[in-house]
C-alpha cells in the first residue's frame, strides 16, 4: 500500500499579513514557515496511523516549492514520511501545482493521495480535486474519518449541517480536516532519522497557468469598539436591535 501526502509550506498562523511591491507580493520578511496545519495534523498523521496499523504501508511526501521548503519537508519526514519529492518551482497557481503533484502521483502509482482540506494562506480548497481529475480518480473532500478494509475505503466527510459516510474502492484522492487524526510532535529519533531519508528534487513538468494574483488588499480597519456597562446588558441588546439592526 502506497500513500502520497501533499505537503504545502504556509506562513505560521501568527504571521503578520502585509504586502510589498505595490500590494502585489506577500511580505515574507521575518515570516516563520510551517507545514500547512491541515496537511500535517490530519493528512500526514492519518497516513502515519495507517502505517502503524499495517507495516506494508509506505508514505511518500510531495511538495511543490523552492529550496525554502526543505525545512518543512524534513519536519514531515521526522514525523513519519518514508521519502519525499520536491518539485523545484514557484507555486504558480493551483492548476500548475496540481499538475506537478499529478505527475509525481502517476509515476508512483499510489493507492491513496492525501491532501489537507485547504492551505491557510490561499484557502483554495482546490488541489485535491484537481489532482483527482487529472488522474481520473474518485475524490472525497473534507474527510473527518478514513478507514480501510482491504481495497475499500470508508470515508466520513463533512457536508452542510452534518456528515456523510461513503464507500470507495482504491485508488482515491482524499482531502483531510479536523477529526481525521490528532496533531503530533516529532521525537528525537524521528528528527535524527529524517536527515538521511531520501528527498528527491525534480524539475517541473510543463503545465498551464490559469489564474494569477493581480494584487492583495487588507480589510478596512474596524471603527473601534463601543463598550456598554456590565450593569446594563439590556443596553447592548437595544443597540444590536436599533443601531446595528442585527437582531
Amino acid at each position: 500500500m502506497k500513500i502520497l501526502v501533499c505537503i504545502s509550506k504556509t506562513p505560521d498562523t501568527t504571521a503578520k499579513i502585509a504586502f510589498t511591491d505595490n500590494n502585489t507580493k506577500f511580505a515574507t520578511d521575518g515570516i516563520q514557515w510551517i507545514i500547512n496545519p491541515y496537511d500535517e495534523w490530519y493528512a500526514l498523521v492519518r497516513a502515519i496511523e495507517l502505517k502503524e496499523a499495517d507495516a506494508g504501508v509506505t508514505i511518500h511526501l510531495v511538495n511543490v516549492g523552492t529550496a525554502e521548503s526543505e525545512p518543512i519537508i524534513r519536519k514531515a519526514l521526522a514525523l513519519g514520511g518514508d521519502a519525499a519529492f520536491r518539485v523545484n518551482t514557484l507555486e504558480e497557481d493551483s492548476y500548475f501545482v496540481a499538475a506537478q503533484i499529478a505527475a509525481i502521483a502517476r509515476e508512483g502509482a499510489y493507492d491513496i493521495v492525501f491532501t489537507g482540506k485547504e492551505t491557510i494562506d490561499y484557502n483554495g480548497s482546490s488541489i485535491g480535486g484537481m489532482v483527482a481529475e487529472l488522474l481520473d480518480l474518485p475524490y472525497i473532500s473534507h474527510a473527518v474519518k478514513f478507514d480501510l478494509s482491504g481495497n475499500t475505503a470508508t470515508v466520513v466527510r463533512e457536508i452542510e449541517g452534518g456528515e456523510e459516510t461513503d464507500q470507495v474502492s482504491l485508488p482515491i484522492v482524499v482531502s483531510c480536516q479536523k477529526g481525521m487524526a490528532e496533531q503530533r510532535i516529532p521525537n528525537m529519533k524521528g528528527i535524527m532519522g529524517a536527515r538521511t531519508k531520501p528527498l528527491t528534487v525534480s524539475e517541473p513538468v510543463t503545465a498551464d497557468i490559469l489564474t494569477r494574483v493581480a494584487s492583495f488588499d487588507l480589510p478596512p480597519a474596524k471603527a473601534g469598539v463601543k463598550l456598554v456597562s456590565a450593569e446594563h446588558p439590556e443596553e447592548l441588546i437595544r443597540l444590536l436591535h436599533e443601531e446595528a439592526k442585527a437582531i
Partner: peptide, 23 residues
C-alpha cells in the same frame, strides 16, 4: 462555495481548462 463546490469546482477547472476562484 459549499462542500459540493469544493469537491466539484476544482475538477471542472481541470476538465474545462477554466481558471477557478474559490471563496
Amino acid at each position: 462555495n459549499t462542500t459540493t463546490a469544493k469537491a466539484v469546482a476544482p475538477r471542472l477547472s481541470v476538465k474545462l481548462k477554466a481558471g477557478l476562484v474559490s471563496g
